[in-house]
Design a protein around this nucleic acid. Sequence first.
DNA 1: GCATAACCCACCAAATTAGTCAAGTATTAT
DNA 2: ATAATACTTGACTAATTTGGTGGGTTATGC
Lengths: 165, 165
Amino acid sequence: MCSPQTQLAEVDAMKLTTKGRYAVTAMLDLALHGQTGPVSLAEISVRQEISLSYLEQLFSKLRRHGLVTSTRGPGGGYSVSRELGDVAVSEIIGAVNESVDATQCAGKENCHSHGRCLTHDLWEGLSAQIEEFLSSVSLQDMIDRHRVHSSSVRQEEVIVQQPFV
Amino acid sequence: MCSPQTQLAEVDAMKLTTKGRYAVTAMLDLALHGQTGPVSLAEISVRQEISLSYLEQLFSKLRRHGLVTSTRGPGGGYSVSRELGDVAVSEIIGAVNESVDATQCAGKENCHSHGRCLTHDLWEGLSAQIEEFLSSVSLQDMIDRHRVHSSSVRQEEVIVQQPFV
DNA sequence: GCATAACCCACCAAATTAGTCAAGTATTAT
DNA sequence: ATAATACTTGACTAATTTGGTGGGTTATGC
């Protein structure tokens, strides 16, 4: 990012876009409806109003990252491949945001003299914190927290037990 | 988002893109160099390698949101309008990501029967947490934390004093 | 007055996102 | 076997966002 030839340079920081939201939404649908067996993308497409082809793109990446497993044939579909508590939101978002990432100035080469690099470091630090935060939230967490929240339980618990260590 | 006419519907959730990063970076530059007076966009442009015109776009929004004040004429420039501890990262990112947002299904209208809305709620919950997290980090926090981190002080402090309450 | 800088605006090229379409391949219930 | 179901792949496109140009206008310190 600091070398001249890499003009704008995507550091592979956590990106929060609708793409990631679609992926998380779909994974949540899978988590909620997948107890009895595989869930077809067609079902998810209808329930979540995401186009089937777009879901195929997303799940192709999710599968390559080992987050879901597929079952072919009639009655087939996708299943979450691990326990819900072991699937972090950051993994889901990271999986669908994967890029070829060829042009990356790995590490910090000549990045110590310019004023840019201090702010660069500061942003990296924040970025790392966001990622750490999203790493600490699993699908199970999201479901549990919602359950607690939507019932008339005290808010205190929800706020105190934040995932950030 | 749940009504049929709103197909994809941007809920105004926190978006983490390069645009927001540019804004935070520029604000940090302002914070670090603005002690002696206003800082011109030209300076920031050189230091942070962001085009002047793009900075103008960003600061136009930052100014309209009251995060910076401008001083015209020679020796002029921008200043952070509040104390650094009072400027949250979430405000900066939110300011530059403002959208006209006309087509929005405000509130939750007919959103209680479909399966979509549970996952929708779950995402909203996470989104709120991310926003809350970013709200708790100020420019001053970022600078302080970096200072602590870059000197050879124990890591413990940094980890323990996380901004998330 | 003049250079400096904020401000404003319309327009644009490239990249990314989101979605479509079509032709496959694999699995399995029957 | 075979049809049905479901996943795979890739090319293609529309919409949006990103980042930038280039033209100007206004305010102000010297």
